[in-house]
Every structure is written in C-alpha cells, then in structure tokens.
Design a protein around this nucleic acid. Structure first.
Lengths: 136, 136
DNA sequence: TTTTAGCTCATACTAAAGTACCAAAGTTCT
DNA sequence: AGAACTTTGGTACTTTAGTATGAGCTAAAA
C-alpha cells in the first residue's frame, strides 16, 4: 500500500515536471514541438502498461473459484469431496484414511464412486477432470 | 493478425493527428499548453493499458510460466519431463508408453526417477509438488 | 413407519504402480 | 576413441489402487 502511494507520488511529480519542461521548451524554442509530444506520449504509454500490469497481478489469484454448482450436478457428496481434495494433495488411500479417522476400505469405496461420477479411470485423471470442472 | 495491423494503423494516425493539432493549437494560442500535454498524456496512458491488455490476453498462458530453471535444478531430463506432463494429464503408464512409442518398462523407469527427483512417494504427489515448483 | 440416501467397513480379487537391479544402445563432450 | 550421461528395455518382486459385492448404521424424507 505504501508502495502504491509512492509510485503515484512519483507519477504526479513526473507529470508536473513534464508540464514545466514542455512549457519552457516551447516558449524558448529549444526543442521541436513534435519531439516533446512524442516524448510525453511514449512516457505515458509505458506508464499505462506498468499500471495495468500492477493491477492485473493483484486480481490474478481471484480467478480460481470453486464451482459448487458443478459438484452438486455431478452428485458428489461431502465425504467424497473431502476425499477428492486429499487425493489432489497427493495422499495415498491409507494416508487419507488416517487423516479422516476412517478405514482404508471406506476410502476405497469413496474413491471408486468418485471415479464413476467424474468418469475417470484413475485418481490422477480424477484430479485433472476435477480441475477442468473448476471443482478443485 | 489483420486486426493488429488495423489497430496499429489507427494508433499511428491518431499520433499524427495529435501532432498536427498540438502544433496548430500552440501556435494559434487557442489552448493552454498544459491542457494539450495532459490530453496527450491521458490518451497514451489508456493506449498503453489497451495494448498491454491485448498482448496479455494472447500470451495469457505466460502468466503461469513454467519455471525452466527449477527443472534443471531438479536435474529432470527432457524425457522425464515429457512423462511428467503425461502423468499430470491423468494417463496410465501404459497409455503414456503408447503415446510416446515406448515400452511400459521405460515409462516405469522414468516415473521412478521422477519420484526420486521430486521427492514424492506417488505420482499424484509428484503432480502437486511439480505444480508447487511451477514446473507444470 | 417404511424408504431413501449417505457413510461406514469387510472380503476377495484384478490391475496398476512402483522398486531394485541390470544391461545395451545412442549422444555429447573431451 | 573413451567417458559420462540419457534413453531405452527387461525381469522379478512388493505395494497401492481399484472393482465387485454385501452389509450394518444413521438421519431425513415420504
């Protein structure tokens, strides 16, 4: 936030300096008008690019939102979704079972139904499909 | 491509018009110098934003840029990286072998060395780790 | 109160995945 | 040509993953 204020302060300062400089240069006739105009144009062209890049990189992380409607559409239950998340974290059935205080059999059951619902043959494919559905 | 040429053509035209206009305005004294300078600044500021947006939307995938240095750092070979990509697509060893015209044994060898290099126990974990390293 | 749906767990089995170890071509660099 | 490395492939084995089927339990809906 402080950085933003600093950047804008510098910008305003540069703008004022350009004003003064252009006025002086035109009146004294040291430089051609075209040159000054071109310089201003180029400077603010890149300022625009810079500002735009800054604002874009901030809203960049907001792009990824979980599509909850799709989860319901695919008829994936709460428990199944939990398991799906653990799968995507790279855990084995055994590890998932331990983390959720369940037996490995139960995890296998959930995984199997997940594969059916996501129309996947493997857990890795389930991950990619889930991400394409914006579920993960 | 034709659109790009058109846009740039329009830009150059606008630039020339501004040149002429500013020269005329300053000489005739109809407008204040500050106003002209400000106008030019504002116009090119937005031009910069526009151009930047266009170029970004085209190279949109460049935002999630693959960290090639990390690949070298992890000592992952070309073939191994190819296999890693196929794993992330959710393919089985057999399917990867068919796509790359290799035997399943070879894929297993590559996968094993990938797991070691990525310090992963499973292929699913390899995917998540690779993504955290910005390799995928 | 049945019925339905979700969650749980088990057994038995098949199919992948992964490990360990070895070995032969092919490249690249010196 | 020899060294070092990548790529390829094999065998034999262990470990996960995944399927099929059945069943008990609970909570909510019909």
């Amino acid at each position: 936030m402080k950085k933003t204020i600093l950047v804008f302060g510098m910008l305003i300062l540069a703008l004022l300096l350009l004003f003064q400089f252009s006025k002086y240069a035109i009146i004294s006739g040291d430089l051609k008008v075209e040159l000054i105009v071109a310089a201003i144009a180029i400077v603010f062209f890149f300022v625009g690019i810079y500002i735009n890049k800054k604002s874009l990189s901030k809203t960049d992380t907001t792009v990824v939102n979980i599509n909850e409607e799709k989860i319901k559409e695919l008829d994936i239950s709460n428990r199944e979704y939990e398991v799906l998340q653990k799968i995507a974290e790279g855990l084995s059935n055994k590890e998932i079972a331990e983390q959720l205080f369940l037996s490995e059999s139960t995890i296998k059951t959930h995984v199997s139904s997940l594969l059916v619902k996501l129309d996947a043959k493997r857990r890795t494919q389930a991950i990619t499909k889930a991400k394409s559905f914006e579920i993960l």
